[in-house]
Computed example of a mutant assay.
Amino acid sequence: MTLQVTEVTLRFGGLTVLSNVSMNAAAGEITALIGPNGAGKSSLINCVTGFYRPQEGNISLFGRETTGLPAHRVAGLGVARTFQHIELFQGLSVIDNLMLGRHRHLKGGALSNGIFYGRSKREELRQRAAVEDIVDFLDMPHIRNTPVGLLPYGLQKRVDLGRALAQEPRLLILDEPMAGMNVEEKEDMARYILELRQESAISVILIEHDMGVVMDISDRVSVLDFGRFIAQGPPEQVRADPAVIAAYIGAPAEAVTGEATGR
């Protein structure tokens, strides 16, 4: 199992953001994490990636207990993420932003890398070759030297994905990668995600509000509502779950169940 979250509770003062949340993500699968705004999705991901430390519960990655590990240690295990709000260096080119994702793979110290000669030069060229493969995969050769701040929003989201891929993650967490995109941009992003699953062993956790995309590309879906875990399973099962329907349309679960059964 790539990720195992067991009865995690997270509080900020007197506010309980997550309450006894449990979920898992299997190797090589796309696991969607959905729920209404404020359900606790990003908070759960922040616990997984080490930005938050839950007061209760356990988190394990790749069979290793990681509860409470700082973010850089979690990243070092092979976890990369994109962010709901773009966190790129706007004045740097696409290539330079992607090279930042290669930081943990660089060998040598600050002095040797600063000289850019011999071994350090070969290392730099090796990392740039890896980045160029990502540029090709994401269809970005035409913007490779463009400052990110000059790119339209949809392409910036693609660069954000590329920087995460540059880390060569075993687990890729995508926090609303299609937010603000038009239909064509969403289709491109969905295609990239599906190709990743087909061509590599990367596990993907996808936070997304577009239910059409979620149901089309996910292997399993986990659902949060008001910080509580309410469902997990195949997309078709979750889509028909009365508690999930109630969370999205605002009706009591009993009423939805009664309407569905004709009572």
Rank of each mutant, 00 (worst) to 15 (best):
G118M: 02
P141A: 11
Q198K: 14
V204K: 06
I134S: 01
R220A: 04
R104H: 14
R73P: 02
A253C: 11
E208G: 01
N113F: 00
L92M: 15
I173Y: 13
V48R: 03
G50K: 07
L69R: 13
M140F: 04
R128A: 11
L69V: 02
G114R: 05
S218C: 08
R263V: 14
G78W: 04
L138P: 06
E254M: 11
P141K: 14
D175S: 08
M215C: 03
L61P: 09
I207E: 08
L3S: 10
R122S: 12
V21I: 07
G35E: 05
P141S: 11
M23G: 02
A166K: 02
R64G: 00
G13Q: 05
G14L: 09
K41R: 09
G162K: 00
I143K: 05
A246Y: 06
I205F: 05
E208T: 03
A166Q: 07
R263S: 14
T66L: 02
G149P: 09
L155N: 06
E29K: 13
I45H: 10
T66C: 09
S60L: 00
S112L: 10
I217K: 09
L150H: 11
E195H: 12
V5E: 04
G38N: 09
D139H: 10
Y248M: 04
A166P: 06
I217C: 08
G180R: 06
S19M: 07
E123Q: 12
E124Q: 15
N37H: 06
E29S: 12
T67V: 08
K107L: 11
G63L: 07
A32Y: 10
I230T: 00
M181R: 10
D188I: 12
I134M: 00
T31D: 01
P234V: 13
S19L: 10
R228I: 00
G101C: 06
R73I: 07
F62I: 12
